[in-house]
Design a protein around this nucleic acid. Structure first.
Length: 565
RNA sequence: GCUCCCGUAGUUCAAUGGAUAGAAUACAGGUUUGCGGUACCUGUGAUUUAGGUUCGAUUCCUAACGGGAGCACCA
């Protein structure tokens, strides 16, 4: 039985025996929280403070009355009144050890919850602009998106992952112009693609003829004029770009069940928009617009005067594609925060077309990534490329290892590098801007991905040395055992993953894992685990549970836990 | 100009309206015959300002100041 339910029940009984009946105090009014300072106990309840005035007693004396009337329970070591009238509960060794047994039995499922059991959720993230390189901004999106997909799945939902590559836009026309300008059509690679894009952007601004030509290219791509030279080049570039995207997202641990391209969504979007003139959309200056200003938002163009859908039309089309092809409870879209207001507009227009579309869609934004001085910058002077960043961090991971006499393999170094980068992002609550200092931010020490990976590898090494087999569950709490901070944190893991899914945020998991690893390392420093006494098995069981928690928790962040590093 | 988001140690981040505001990093000093020192321990150091709501405010409300984003044919 859930420990919160047990404590709530005990409190209700105590209240009843001092004459406060359960009608006046519904269970939901009994707030149980973990005290911010763990020395204050495992759970704290503020019920006395909330009731005191109502029944004309002072909070502390009411709290004492409640404590005096609490029934005994095997899982509760004791309760006391503290501070302004809190009732603090201390859990017992029996509770902790039975929790550890449960956790070990659950194995890979330890930490999973059933908050979204039976639901289907679409998660759309990491949508790339094809022809533009995958840079560190995409890393941010991928980190949060992948982590959320895993957190939602961990809560029992069926998750379908989608990505929405932009394969048609004026920017792409610029890149195609650049490729033709340099004559690279037969020797194209991902670096040249980036350079071609930059050249196209510059030419569009500075050269009138180039501008005209680019507009023509854009039109031919939108209209899919297969016989033109630019369309042939476009197809080569699109394929190359898409391969790169799939390669790098796979490296990062992501898989997409479905790719919906903008070309498809644009067609679908324009159709549904035209069908909704004039009820929802209206014509203005040759374009089709949505009057967001009627709803406190702003007006914007959905189909431009040349007859092409803007990204608002594309996203409208994507919504229709989602609802036509899948049956789901919620669709979650993760983008950069600069699109926040645009998605509010999109949601409002979607609501006008079909109420269900808006009701079942959730648009989440993560913060922007800004760079301080760093040694890395991309070849075109813009944001550093993801792949360069990973390689650079990987190199310093290997250097670190060599310096301490280890020999980290490429494969492990890569897991450490990706773990360092992803953790740095995932530990920050989504929505806040992230400031990146290439040289300093990605530390391998302290509150970092590698710190957690290191702790995990250390646990495994210990277990291996001891030949401990946790499938046996052959352990008992040693006599005179004083519960450690580690045990007092371990049982909270499912609460954390539940909070992560309720708030749709991964950073609670990251902070929890850091707290746990830190508690374990402190304990490890002063406690000999393999001490040859009959306490050894219990200490190993704790170690194994820490390892499982770290592994499962890192998984929720999209980070691998290598068995050694 | 209008709308939205954000202001916490030198720096990067935490804190379901709760108790003495937590970490990491940086800085100063320390820990090993014992299992992985990318570890552990000690110390210094912060809620932008002014009101309000509340038993209680970093958190909610109002204003000012400071930073970011959006505001018609880019995504």
């Amino acid at each position: 039985m859930n420990i919160r339910v047990i404590i709530t029940k005990l409190l209700t009984q105590a209240l009843a025996s001092i004459g406060i009946n359960s009608d006046g105090v519904p269970d939901k009014d009994i707030d149980l929280e973990h005290p911010s300072d763990i020395n204050h106990g495992d759970y704290a309840c503020n019920i006395a403070m909330r009731l005191a005035r109502k029944i004309g007693k002072n909070p502390r004396s009411l709290a004492s009355d409640i404590v005096a009337n609490l029934p005994q329970h095997d899982f509760i070591e004791g309760a006391e009144v503290a501070g302004p009238g809190f009732i603090n509960f201390y859990l017992s060794n029996n509770f902790f050890s039975s929790g550890i047994k449960e956790a070990l039995k659950a194995g890979g499922a330890w930490g999973s919850v059933d908050t979204l059991k039976g639901k289907t959720v679409l998660v759309e993230h990491s949508s790339p602009n094809l022809f533009k390189p995958f840079h560190i901004g995409h890393l941010v999106n991928n980190t949060y998106g992948e982590s959320l997909a895993r957190i939602i799945k961990n809560a029992g939902a069926h998750v379908i992952t989608l990505s929405f590559p932009s394969d048609v836009s004026p920017g792409i026309a610029k890149a195609v112009w650049g490729i033709m300008h340099y004559g690279w059509e037969n020797e194209l690679d991902i670096e040249k693609l980036g350079e071609a894009y930059v050249a196209g952007v510059r030419a569009y601004k500075e050269n009138e003829d180039a501008k005209k030509r680019i507009d023509e290219i854009n039109k031919n791509i939108y209209l899919q004029k297969e016989q033109t030279k630019e369309f042939a080049i476009y197809k080569i570039g699109k394929e190359l770009s898409l391969d790169h995207f799939l390669h790098i997202t796979k490296l990062l641990g992501s898989h997409f069940d479905k790719l919906v391209f903008e070309t498809e969504a644009e067609t679908v979007g324009k159709e549904i928009i035209r069908q909704n003139i004039p009820e929802v959309f209206e014509e203005s200056d040759g374009a089709v617009i949505f009057r967001g200003s009627k709803y406190g938002l702003f007006d914007n163009v959905y189909i431009n005067s040349a007859g092409f859908g803007t990204y608002l039309a594309k996203d409208t089309g994507l919504l229709k594609i989602k609802f036509d092809n899948y049956s789901f409870d919620e669709s979650v879209t993760i983008t950069d925060i600069e699109q926040k207001q645009h998605f509010e507009l999109l949601k409002k227009s979607a609501e006008c077309i079909n109420k269900e579309w808006a009701k079942k869609s959730r648009f989440l934004q993560h913060g922007r990534l800004s760079l301080t001085t760093g040694k890395l910058s991309s070849r075109d002077g813009g944001a550093p490329l993801a792949i360069d960043m990973i390689n650079s961090v990987k190199e310093s991971a290997m250097e670190n290892s060599r310096a301490s006499g280890g020999k980290l393999t490429e494969e492990y170094a890569q897991q450490v590098a990706i773990g360092a980068i992803k953790y740095f992002i995932a530990k920050v609550s989504m929505g806040r801007n992230i400031i990146f200092d290439m040289d300093k931010s990605l530390s391998f020490e302290g509150n970092s991905g590698p710190y957690l990976q290191y702790t995990y590898a250390r646990c495994l090494s210990l277990i291996k040395n001891a030949n401990f087999n946790y499938d046996i569950y052959d352990f008992n709490v040693p006599d005179n055992w004083k519960a450690t901070l580690v045990e007092r944190l371990l049982y909270r893991f499912p609460e954390i993953s539940e909070r992560a899914v309720i708030e749709y945020s991964s950073h609670h998991v990251a902070n929890y894992l850091n707290e746990l690893a830190s508690a374990y390392n402190s304990w490890y420093a002063k406690e000999k685990i393999l001490d040859g006494t009959n306490a050894e098995n219990y200490k190993l069981a704790i170690t194994q549970t820490v390892a499982n928690t770290l592994k499962n928790g890192l998984y929720l962040l999209g980070i691998d836990a290598p068995d050694r590093m």
